[in-house]
Simulated scan of single mutants.
Amino acid sequence: MSIRICILLILLWTAFGGCRSGRDASILPEYDFIPVETGRYTIYDVQETQYTRNTPPVQRTYRLKETIGPAYNDVTGQPAYRLLRYRRISDDQPWQPDSIWSVRLVNNEVIRTENGQDFVKLLYPASDGLIWNGNRYNVFKPNRYEARNVGQPFSVSGKEFRSTITVVAQDDSTLIGQTKRVDVYAHQIGMIYKERTYLQFCTDLPTCLGKNQIDYGIRQIYRIQTYGKE
């Protein structure tokens, strides 16, 4: 091999190999930011506020428990897990069945079926700025999901989780309303925080236009309380 060819190969390796290693530093290839394993459970403290015009906001607090049930094959023949959801107002009450969803890992996608609709909650390997269509299995219009703060710590109710991923499905605020859908996942734990905000602002009176006065809507915040395996 001539000296000229050797120099060319070294230059190519430096240009492509060096840049790739620097870019990949923020990529997390692990497949366990949403662990899928029978018996895993997570309990959330949920704070819900409902807004209606000319009435005080109505606040509700309760606890929600999600437990991953036994595996089964879905209609496509893919392995999936039932997600058993329970709810109660306080610790001295028994858990009451709330709903049954499902979760599955297909190739590099974590898919949750919620109320009969599939959503791609996370895409692996995760990296800052990674974008995908969370609605690609639905007939809805595409929904742009974006991964942010990959590998960064996140605190919930005084507890710090060292390595997390924030997924933003929507974060819009205009003169007529606000919509926010954000999930945070912790390494080897799963979802630790969720916010759902759907607000409609008053627009039919000159005195309220542009002042973010809430006409109606709802805000829900989920914070992890505990987790484990049964």
Results as ranks from 00 to 15, higher is better:
182 V>F: 02
71 A>V: 03
207 T>S: 07
28 L>W: 12
129 G>F: 01
227 Y>K: 09
59 Q>V: 07
49 T>R: 10
85 R>Q: 08
210 G>N: 07
76 T>N: 10
136 R>C: 13
83 L>N: 03
30 E>L: 02
40 R>D: 15
17 G>N: 09
83 L>F: 06
69 G>P: 04
91 D>R: 15
45 D>Y: 08
42 T>F: 01
104 R>P: 03
39 G>S: 09
70 P>D: 14
183 D>R: 07
220 Q>R: 14
227 Y>L: 06
12 L>S: 04
110 V>T: 15
143 N>C: 09
183 D>L: 07
102 S>Y: 03
144 R>S: 15
91 D>N: 15
11 L>Y: 06
57 P>Y: 09
73 N>D: 08
104 R>Q: 11
11 L>T: 08
73 N>C: 01
228 G>N: 00
47 Q>G: 12
141 K>Q: 05
115 N>Y: 10
81 Y>R: 06
162 R>T: 12
56 P>G: 00
49 T>L: 01
175 L>H: 13
26 S>E: 06
3 I>P: 00
172 D>Q: 07
212 N>S: 13
2 S>E: 14
169 A>P: 07
105 L>F: 01
55 T>M: 04
104 R>G: 05
199 L>A: 11
7 I>W: 04
26 S>C: 00
85 R>I: 13
174 T>P: 00
218 I>P: 03
59 Q>I: 05
123 L>I: 12
29 P>Y: 06
152 Q>Y: 05
21 S>K: 13
66 E>W: 04
171 D>L: 03
23 R>A: 14
130 L>M: 14
22 G>L: 14
88 R>P: 12
206 P>L: 01
52 T>I: 11
186 A>S: 12
159 K>R: 13
10 I>C: 15
207 T>K: 05
179 T>N: 08
111 I>Y: 02
26 S>N: 06
214 I>A: 08
167 V>F: 01
35 P>Q: 05
17 G>I: 00
8 L>I: 11
215 D>T: 01
215 D>P: 00
202 C>P: 00
188 Q>H: 13
99 S>Q: 02
137 Y>M: 09
157 S>T: 08
49 T>C: 01
220 Q>W: 11
127 S>G: 06
97 P>A: 05
48 E>T: 01
59 Q>R: 15
62 Y>I: 02
179 T>C: 03
93 Q>Y: 02
51 Y>H: 12
226 T>P: 04
63 R>H: 11
43 I>Q: 04
98 D>H: 15
226 T>Y: 07
61 T>K: 01
35 P>H: 05
17 G>T: 01
82 R>D: 05
217 G>I: 07
109 E>H: 14
113 T>F: 02
150 V>I: 05
206 P>D: 04
12 L>V: 11
226 T>F: 06
95 W>Y: 11
76 T>W: 02
23 R>M: 12
127 S>A: 05
77 G>Q: 03
213 Q>K: 08
120 V>T: 12
